[in-house]
Design a binder for these strands. Structure first.
Lengths: 138, 138
DNA sequence: ACAGAAGTTTAGCCCGTGCTACAATTTGGT
DNA sequence: ACCAAATTGTAGCACGGGCTAAACTTCTGT
């Protein structure tokens, strides 16, 4: 063992995160779309993520297998209870990160982009600090 | 067009980022390993990222093709000038994010993990704000 | 009611990143 | 100099997520 010690662990965690990021983004999107236009169709998701409907379809199928989404062939996409819980947690986390960035003085557009990238990597501990800070700086 | 407007753009950007994250991580690692033990070998990278040497090898080959790394068969791995510049920028960015997290009161371990995940998604604008904030809170 | 439009599924391709197993090369010790 | 260990390379697999093309289902308007 040389001096490099625990360098591997964060990277392992980053890779694990990657696997769940898509799931988080999709349940969040489904929740948002449903709240906006009642039902969420494949095309909506494809547009939302700017991917082909085929890609969206495969991801929806995976997330259904994982118990986060529910849909029947040619039918709208619903959230399972588990999916709803995840979507809620993600929305909150997203909001906190976004508001924190705004409170730093970042413009809305940049904040939206950065929040999208950052949110998946913020631990609960850090999230709590960001929340406190955004609040106190109001 | 419904109300959802520009939701796609951040996701496009996030996907683009994905493609360069690995590159950034690897040049950063190579720079660090070289500064620690003179030469950077494949095994070092494999250990660093906790992946098999085969995976590391393929990524090194890709980054060589992209002009960031330089190596000969069975020889140590070097940074090209371009790779060095990228590594420098990444190290600075990483440092800023890490110090910012510490200044929030996050413990070192959590800060290290979060910084690793977050750094790739922080825009220059946001980075500047984080830097200012970490400084003024010293 | 039925044709065309809209939406969805399937087939089949690509690339990146993960792996194991095995082959080849380099390095080190005697 | 040579064998063994360490290191690196290659073959071939898996999976996720990107795509187009083409088939299929559902919806809609006349």
């Amino acid at each position: 063992m040389t001096g490099s010690s625990n360098k591997a662990e964060p990277h392992r965690r980053t890779r694990r995160d990657h696997a769940t990021e898509t799931a988080e983004d999709y349940v969040e999107a489904v929740a948002e779309i449903i709240s906006e236009r009642e039902t969420c169709r494949l095309v909506d998701l494809a547009k939302y993520f700017a991917v082909s409907h085929v890609t969206a379809n495969r991801i929806v199928a995976r997330l259904q297998k994982e118990g986060l989404l529910q849909t029947e062939p040619y039918q709208p996409i619903e959230l399972t209870p588990q999916g709803k819980r995840l979507a809620d947690r993600c929305r909150q986390r997203h909001e906190i990160v976004y508001r924190f960035l705004l409170s730093l003085g970042i413009d809305k557009k940049t904040a939206a982009i950065d929040a999208e990238g950052i949110e998946h990597h913020v631990s609960p501990k850090t999230l709590r600090k960001l929340e406190q800070w955004a609040k106190q700086s109001k």
